[in-house]
Each structure stands twice: as C-alpha cells, then as structure tokens.
C-alpha cells in the first residue's frame, strides 16, 4: 500500500529530497534573498528549504553555554533516574 505521488510532484526524487543547494538551507545568515525566492517559487511550506540536506555543522559552532547546560542536565537527569530506581529497589526490601 504505497502511496502514489501526484503527477505534479515529478520533480521530487524517490527519496523525497529536493535537489537543492545546501548553502540556501543551512544557516539563517545564508538564507538570503535568492534562497527565499527559490523556496517561495517551489512551495510555501517552510520545510521545503530544509528538507534537502541534513544540516550537521562542526561541533565548535554550537554555543558553548548550550552544550554545558544540556550536558549538565543530562547528568542530573541520569543520576536522578538512578536515584529513583535505587529508592524503589530499597523500598522493595525495606518497608
């Protein structure tokens, strides 16, 4: 039961990706007028300009504060989860 794409969608390849230049997609700084024109001419859906590539970027470009915050929170969440599990295990043996 695979769906049939509409005939007007023939410009889209089988993976559903559009043949777009990555430079029109990656960052807001690069989202210039020509990029907007391309996206508007194709479709008004905001995902159109993002679908083409998987926008990984160098780790160094990620904001340091965000990385520190998320790493800290991940550690807190994992330790908290272990703490709750430990309490439940202890609660099973001691009433």
């Amino acid at each position: 039961m695979k769906s049939n794409n509409n005939p007007e969608d023939e410009t889209i390849d089988s993976t559903g990706k559009q043949d777009m230049n990555a430079s029109t997609i990656l960052s807001e700084d690069e989202n210039n007028e020509s990029g907007k024109e391309v996206s508007q001419s194709k479709s008004s859906h905001p995902w159109e300009v993002e679908l083409g590539v998987y926008p990984l970027r160098p780790a160094a470009e990620d904001p340091k504060w965000a990385i520190r915050l998320v790493k800290s929170w991940a550690v807190i969440a994992v330790l908290s989860g272990i703490f709750v599990i430990a309490l439940l295990i202890l609660g099973f043996f001691f009433d």
Partner: peptide, 12 residues
C-alpha cells in the same frame, strides 16, 4: 495540498 517532498516526509 503540499508538494511531493513534504508528502513523502509525512508518509515516512
């Protein structure tokens, strides 16, 4: 009424 790329995305 989206394009084929968007529809393919939702189908996946």
């Amino acid at each position: 009424p989206n394009s084929g790329a968007i529809k393919a995305c939702y189908e996946k």
